[in-house]
């Protein structure tokens, strides 16, 4: 019996794309009475089924709109799948969009505690890791400045530092290894690589196939919400390359 970190069981995700955005009761009632309430059903994921073993680094490949981000959000627990279920073993840290949980009026320091708590860590744990986080983010004295005065690179650096220094079991990386300047990019890649060594399970999305090939040992390929290939990175990358050409 393999030791799974994530089991995705026949997951489908449906979105109702209302043709117009309805924000008010008045509009809603009028449309309802006129029977103009139409929804376009849209299945972002269709019967996706796969498992990730502990310690695997899985690249998620696919063209734009293939459902990569939706899949990651379902796995992260942000979306509840319309059908099927996801079983997770261990703590997930989603790096979907760096610094998304930040409050712009808060200082960097306050945001470290806020973001740490959002990720489900205890105060003592964040206390212990605090200096390390500040150091890794290279923010220096800016740590006591409100986030709203940060550049986007600074924000991303802080987000990355918090999320990776807290030793998750499962790490979800959605296009995040392309933040900051070249120096920080190298540093963050090295950080992720060192985490691989400690047996963290990784789901990785990037548009750079070269980067995926370098970092991952396995891959899955999505197309229009369907899982069309899974296996070792080389096999899947070959199919993906054929598809893009």
């Amino acid at each position: 019996m393999p030791n799974y970190a994530i089991e995705v069981r026949d997951v489908s995700m449906k979105f109702n794309l209302s043709q117009e955005k309805l924000d008010s009761l008045k509009e809603y009632v009028i449309k309802l009475l006129k029977r103009q309430l139409k929804y376009n059903e849209f299945w972002a994921l269709k019967h996706v089924d796969f498992s990730v073993e502990k310690g695997d680094r899985v690249g998620v490949l696919g063209l734009n709109g293939a459902g990569k981000s939706t899949l990651l959000k379902v796995i992260a627990g942000v979306f509840k799948p319309t059908e099927g279920q996801v079983i997770r073993h261990g703590r997930i840290v989603p790096l979907l969009e760096l610094g998304a949980g930040f409050d712009s009026q808060y200082t960097g320091k306050e945001n470290i505690y806020l973001y740490g708590s959002v990720l489900g860590y205890s105060k003592q744990f964040v206390d212990e890791k605090f200096n390390e986080i500040v150091e890794f983010s290279e923010l220096g004295e800016f740590i006591d400045v409100p986030i709203k005065n940060y550049s986007s690179g600074m924000k991303a650096r802080l987000g990355f530092s918090i999320a990776t220094l807290v030793e998750p079991d499962i790490l979800i990386l959605d296009e995040v290894l392309s933040v900051g300047d070249a120096k920080f990019r190298k540093k963050s890649e090295a950080k992720v690589m060192s985490m691989f060594g400690s047996g963290v399970t990784v789901l990785f999305v990037s548009h750079s196939l070269e980067q995926v090939q370098r970092l991952c040992n396995k891959a899955i390929l999505l197309d229009h919400g369907q899982l069309i290939a899974q296996g070792s990175i080389d096999e899947v990358a070959k199919i993906y390359e054929e598809m893009t050409n």
Partner: peptide, 21 residues
């Protein structure tokens, strides 16, 4: 229990930001 710290952080944030500036 797991999210007690988050609850406390959010409460603190509400109070802090209400009168900041």
């Amino acid at each position: 229990k797991k999210y007690r710290f988050l609850l406390r952080e959010l409460v603190k944030k509400g109070i802090k930001l209400k009168y900041r500036r």
